[in-house]
Amino acid sequence: MDAQTSFLDKLFDRGILHSSGVDGLYARSGAFEDVIRRFEDYVLKIGEGETSEAMVFPPGMTMADFETSGYMKNFPQLAGTVHAFCGDNHGHMDLLECMATGKDWTEGQKRTDLALTPAACYPLYPILARRGPLPEGGVTVALQSYCFRHEPSKDPARMQMFRQREYVRVGNADEAIEFRETWKRRGKEIMDALHLPAHVDVANDPFFGRAGKMLGASQREQELKFEMLVAITSSENPTACMSFNYHMDNFGKAWGIARADGEPAHTACVGFGLERITLALFRHHGLEIENWPEAVRATLWG
């Protein structure tokens, strides 16, 4: 049995996660959620003094904003869109007939105005754009969202539905880059406080296809993305538990977010993979939270 399946089975056996029958879709126990809550409180305290406002998003975003994000250009294989039955009585009978006979009943499903949110900060940008030009000095938003990525896996650290907590900086290029550098440093301090062995490395997003190879290489060459890597189910392929991203003015231009001087905003974000960090804690400190190192418990539970 490989390390991924074995760790996942242990989590199921202890009731920390509960299987749904589909890889990457799990129920979380109270203990698991408590760790997530404590970690979020801890991270929120660190950025408290610099945050303009906080938002929590539902797991879906508008189809129009999803299209504007450009996600389908880069990651069509990971996206999920919401479709629903929009037929009449006759269509309903056909649907039930298909279900009863084991045929594909989803053919008549029609697109709705919703897509599943692929990255926690996407729903923020159109909200900021609608407000008009940013205040002088830009804004910093603390946010959280459930995200979806279609990548079923036995690796418990690669879920299809998971939460990202983020801080997003929206301002000029210098402000965005300074923010990212600050959080790279703080990210390591957080990992040290949690006694998790971690290191930062330059990274690229999993862009689709051959074109994606080029986009990935370009992203690395420009050092736009860094990840905080922790070994969870493999030391050769450690898991990205945080990411530190500078988007240049891509989102500022895509959504039309203007700075106070009228120029397109530059954005940066730090993302915390809440399930991944929690899994890293269980992996490194054991499945019994009571037995975690005192210093780690003190960091999280105060």
Binding site: R210, M214, A217, E221
Partner: peptide, 12 residues
């Protein structure tokens, strides 16, 4: 077809 080793910013 560009080989993967050439799929970088320098090539273009």
């Amino acid at each position: 077809e560009f080989p993967e080793t050439m799929l970088n910013r320098g090539t273009f």
